[in-house]
C-alpha cells in the first residue's frame, strides 16, 4: 500500500489539493493500479533500439521562429477568458 505521505507528496507536485477522504481512496486505487502495472516487468526488452528513430512520426517538425500576424479580436477573446483581468492584461497574484 502506498503511504499517506507519499500520496500527499505527489499531490503537492501535481498542485492538487486532496481531502483526507480523497487521500485514503487514492492510496487504495493507486496501489491496485500499480500492482497491475507489475505485469510490465515480464515484458522483454525491444530487440532493435534504433527502430523508433526510423519512424516518420518520430522525427522533429520545426517551423521558422517568426511572428505570425493574428487578429486583435483573437487576442481579445483569449484574454476575455481569464478569470481576473485589467486593461487587456491577465492579473496574477504576486509570484515573488
Amino acid at each position: 500500500m502506498i503511504s499517506k505521505e507519499e500520496v500527499q507528496k505527489i499531490a503537492g507536485l501535481a498542485r492538487l489539493e486532496l481531502s483526507e477522504k480523497e487521500i485514503e481512496k487514492m492510496q487504495k486505487d493507486l496501489s491496485s493500479i500499480l500492482d497491475y502495472f507489475n505485469i510490465l516487468k515480464k515484458a522483454p526488452k525491444p530487440k532493435d533500439k534504433s527502430q523508433s528513430s526510423k519512424d516518420a512520426w518520430n522525427k522533429n517538425v520545426l517551423r521558422k521562429d517568426t511572428v505570425i500576424e493574428k487578429s486583435a479580436s483573437l487576442a481579445n477573446n483569449l484574454v476575455e477568458m481569464a478569470p481576473d483581468k485589467k486593461d487587456g492584461y491577465i492579473k496574477v497574484r504576486s509570484i515573488l
Binding site: A14, L16, M26
Partner: peptide
C-alpha cells in the same frame, strides 16, 4: 485544481505524476 477536477481526473494526474 482540488475543486475543479473530479475523482478520475485527479486519479490520472496522480498516476502520471507518480
Amino acid at each position: 485544481r482540488g475543486k475543479g477536477f473530479n475523482a478520475e481526473a485527479k486519479r490520472r494526474i496522480i498516476i502520471g505524476t507518480y
